[in-house]
């Protein structure tokens, strides 16, 4: 008698099985979006090199409603990407600074505070003199 083994199969929509899988997929999508943001900024530099009118045209394009909506979505995904990675730092903790591992929420809080601090410093450096 021939015995057939049924091959292993991953469900096609495995990431809809629970909220954690979906959160992971959004985090990964956020990584792609970070790269997309980089390309937009790179294009901005290219337009700047091409002259004032090219740069102004690019800025006008960014101000159109579809681009604004797109940027809101992209920004939300980048924010999600950053926050979820901050959550994971505390769960992995390969380097232990204290005798007992710190709760992940504490590590998350410290990272968010540092992030806000660094972002504030960058904003001040760019716009502080205005």
């Amino acid at each position: 008698m021939t015995v057939h083994e049924y091959p292993a199969r991953r469900r096609r929509v495995w990431w809809l099985r629970n909220r954690r899988y979906l959160a992971f997929q959004l985090r990964e999508a956020g990584g792609v979006v970070c790269a997309l943001y980089g390309l937009i900024l790179l294009n901005m530099l290219i337009q700047l090199r091409d002259g004032e009118s090219a740069y102004a045209a690019f800025l006008n394009l960014l101000r159109t409603p579809p681009m604004l909506y797109l940027n809101v979505v992209l920004f939300a995904l980048v924010l999600w990407h950053a926050l979820t990675w901050f959550m994971l730092i505390g769960k992995a903790q390969p380097i232990q600074f204290t005798r007992e591992p710190l709760p992940w929420k504490v590590v998350f809080g410290i990272n968010v505070l540092l992030w806000i601090g660094v972002s504030g410093a960058v904003v001040y450096l760019i716009f502080g003199g205005m």
Binding site: N18, R20, Y21, F24, L88, K91, A92, Q93
Partner: peptide, 17 residues
Amino acid sequence: FVGECSVVCPKEVDPAA
């Protein structure tokens, strides 16, 4: 680092970490 392995682990081994 999906992390689901640690969620389902019945012995709290935390393989993801």
